[in-house]
Amino acid sequence: MRKVKLRYFGRLSEIIGSDNEIVELKHDKTLGILNAELQLKYPGLSKVHYLIFVNSTKATNLDIKINNTDEISFMPPFSGG
């Protein structure tokens, strides 16, 4: 079974109730499918704007396949400085 680590930042960690989780990938899955599944599991997610990073790169295409070594980060708009 393949597993990937998901990390949640800022207000997203409140919506999820944790700052990370491990999910199992039962078959090839795109980032878009994972995102849709998370929005079903955590309805609050679809009410806020967020960015998705795969490893250290901002995802601009939700059709990419997820690899089991990937770390996927979900982040609200930045508010540093």
Binding site: F9, G10, R11, F53, S73, M75, P76, P77, F78, S79, G80, G81
Partner: peptide
């Protein structure tokens, strides 16, 4: 540097209020 940092660097601010509530900061 200040402008681009605020736009591109993933830092998150949680504003803690005097009344005990909080709000997520937005640039």
């Amino acid at each position: 540097i200040v402008d681009v940092f605020k736009e591109k660097v993933p830092v998150f601010g949680k504003e803690i209020l005097a009344n005990g509530k909080y709000a997520w900061k937005e640039n």
